[in-house]
Amino acid sequence: MEARHVHLWVAGRVRHLDAPTIAHELYVAILSSGAPAVEMTLSTAGPRIRITALGPEQLPLLYSHGPGWQIITGLANISGLTTDECGLWAQVGTSR
Rank of each mutant, 00 (worst) to 15 (best):
residue 30 I to K: 01
residue 9 W to I: 08
residue 54 L to T: 09
residue 49 I to E: 00
residue 57 E to P: 03
residue 41 T to M: 06
residue 95 S to Q: 09
residue 53 A to R: 00
residue 26 L to V: 05
residue 8 L to P: 02
residue 40 M to I: 12
residue 8 L to M: 10
residue 35 A to V: 03
residue 86 C to P: 00
residue 41 T to F: 03
residue 3 A to N: 07
residue 68 G to S: 12
residue 65 H to R: 13
residue 9 W to L: 09
residue 17 L to K: 13
residue 76 A to S: 12
residue 96 R to N: 06
residue 94 T to H: 03
residue 3 A to P: 05
residue 50 R to H: 02
residue 46 G to H: 05
residue 92 V to L: 09
residue 64 S to F: 08
residue 59 L to K: 01
residue 68 G to C: 10
residue 67 P to S: 13
residue 92 V to D: 00
residue 14 V to M: 05
residue 64 S to W: 06
residue 33 S to P: 03
residue 92 V to R: 00
residue 36 P to A: 15
residue 39 E to I: 07
residue 54 L to F: 04
residue 57 E to A: 11
residue 74 G to C: 10
residue 84 D to P: 02
residue 30 I to D: 00
residue 16 H to R: 12
residue 87 G to I: 00
residue 13 R to Q: 13
residue 44 T to C: 08
residue 94 T to P: 00
residue 71 I to V: 15
residue 59 L to C: 04
residue 33 S to F: 04
residue 5 H to S: 10
residue 12 G to H: 06
residue 29 A to S: 15
residue 50 R to N: 05
residue 46 G to Y: 11
residue 3 A to L: 09
residue 23 A to V: 06
residue 56 P to K: 06
residue 64 S to Q: 14
residue 54 L to A: 07
residue 36 P to L: 12
residue 30 I to L: 11
residue 70 Q to R: 15
residue 79 S to H: 11
residue 18 D to F: 13
residue 50 R to C: 07
residue 20 P to K: 09
residue 89 W to G: 01
residue 68 G to R: 11
residue 1 M to A: 12
residue 41 T to E: 10
residue 80 G to Y: 04
residue 71 I to K: 10
residue 7 H to W: 13
residue 48 R to G: 08
residue 37 A to K: 08
residue 49 I to M: 01
residue 58 Q to W: 04
residue 77 N to R: 08
residue 48 R to D: 15
residue 15 R to H: 09
residue 62 L to H: 13
residue 37 A to F: 11
residue 6 V to L: 04
residue 34 G to C: 07
residue 70 Q to H: 15
residue 17 L to E: 12
residue 63 Y to Q: 07
residue 29 A to T: 14
residue 24 H to P: 02
residue 18 D to Q: 13
residue 5 H to L: 08
residue 43 S to D: 14
residue 56 P to I: 09
residue 1 M to G: 11
residue 52 T to D: 02
residue 63 Y to A: 05
residue 31 L to N: 14
residue 26 L to A: 07
residue 18 D to M: 10
residue 79 S to M: 04
residue 69 W to K: 09
residue 73 T to N: 15
residue 48 R to H: 15
residue 59 L to T: 01
residue 44 T to K: 09
residue 76 A to E: 02
residue 52 T to H: 01
residue 55 G to M: 03
residue 94 T to Q: 10
residue 21 T to R: 09
residue 30 I to C: 03
residue 76 A to H: 05
residue 4 R to W: 12
residue 72 I to S: 03
residue 13 R to W: 03
residue 72 I to M: 11
residue 2 E to V: 10
residue 37 A to Q: 13
residue 18 D to Y: 14
residue 53 A to S: 05
residue 88 L to W: 00
residue 58 Q to L: 11
residue 23 A to H: 01
residue 26 L to P: 01
residue 63 Y to W: 13
residue 15 R to D: 12
residue 28 V to S: 09
